[in-house]
């Protein structure tokens, strides 16, 4: 098991290096000369000399390998460069925006887990009945409605009509509820199917018949015998969905005026602020890799066949 975790860690590190290369390549190959943009931002109608000065200042004329090295070295020390648009350092801005996105995604993941288990179990406990059909339809709706639409509906109904929650902003717990639901609904819909189908498959296995032969009720069999068997599959799907939620945040953050990383990323894209785009992409990819690493380790802990590998007797 220790060996397996070490292998995953090594793979994750390799992936991270690849991710930095990808970010860097993307930005370098973007069209347009950044130096022109910056020089014109400083002095309208900048001369050729002024542009050259900016190029030298930013190190744009260095070989690509040197530029990559400089950027990576800075990134490792928390210096992600300077925004072309504002001239501010990106590191501190990201630092203040990260907790917002983290709260959004973590809360959304919790909501998705709660809802998916509730929906999945209702369907599995009473298969073929009204509850089962209801959860199926909920899952279908949740999976097919785009989050900007869901968010707008939620704002209209709960914030504008019922005045239960604020429409936007980040002022305390209540302002987080609608964003969490908006970002968590799609993963909840997908995960509820994972729970429902997983439980159904487990209950069709011979060991479910053994559980019945022991005198366990269907409900007890579901919780004690079927649930441990779907854990690895569920954690795998949860990891993938959590990664995708960062993408969802690009829509949800502007919708609720949350000043998170995804909002920052969107601004960067709109203003061709490639340093910001690059930094945000790096954050997203790092998050994605870490979440998948955690999910892999979680799968190892819940699948007995993997738990004992590589370290007998642990």
């Amino acid at each position: 098991m220790g060996t397996l975790i070490a292998i995953r860690l090594r793979n994750a590190a390799a992936l991270l290096v690849l991710a930095t290369l990808l970010c860097f390549t993307l930005v370098v190959s973007a069209p347009g000369n950044v130096a022109v943009l910056i020089a014109e931002l400083r002095t309208p109608k900048a001369t050729f000399e002024q542009v050259r000065a900016v190029e030298t200042e930013l190190g744009l004329n260095d070989p690509l390998v040197v530029r990559y090295g400089n950027w990576l070295g800075g990134a490792l020390q928390g210096d992600l460069g300077v925004s072309y648009k504002t001239g501010d350092h990106i590191g501190p801005t990201l630092g203040s925006r990260l907790p917002v996105t983290f709260t959004l995604v973590a809360g959304g993941a919790c909501f998705a887990m709660l809802l998916s288990f509730a929906l999945g179990f209702v369907g599995a406990l009473w298969p073929g009945r009204f509850g089962d059909a209801f959860t199926r339809i909920t899952a279908l709706l949740g999976a097919s409605m785009p989050s900007f639409f869901v968010g707008a509906l939620l704002i209209y109904f709960f914030a504008v009509k019922l005045r239960l929650f604020p429409t936007f902003g980040s002022a305390g717990f209540s302002s987080w509820i609608l964003p969490w639901i908006t970002i968590g609904l799609l993963p909840a819909a997908v995960l509820s199917r994972v729970v429902r189908v997983g439980l159904e498959e487990a209950m069709a296995m011979p060991f479910a018949l053994t559980a019945a032969a022991k005198g366990l009720s269907r409900r007890a069999s579901l919780f004690r015998h079927a649930l441990p068997n779907i854990a690895p599959t569920y954690i795998n799907a949860l990891g993938a969905q959590s990664g995708l939620m960062v993408v969802g945040a690009v829509v949800v953050e502007p919708l609720f005026a949350l000043k998170g990383v995804s909002d920052f990323f969107l601004q960067g894209v709109l203003f061709r602020d490639f340093m910001v785009v690059q930094a945000c992409l790096l954050i997203f990819l790092t998050f994605f890799i870490i979440v998948n690493l955690i999910a892999d380790i979680g799968i190892m802990f819940t699948d007995p066949k993997l738990r004992r590998q590589g370290g007998a007797g642990t």
């Binding site: 011979p206 053994t210 019945a212 032969a213 022991k214 005198g215 441990p228 068997n229 699948d303």
Partner: peptide, 22 residues
């Protein structure tokens, strides 16, 4: 259910699939 497992025990053909792997 009170009789199954209590007063009547059951042994199945294939112990690999009849036991819960998890």
């Amino acid at each position: 259910r009170r009789i199954r497992g209590g007063r009547i025990g059951t042994i199945f053909q294939d112990p690999m699939s009849a036991l819960n792997p998890a």
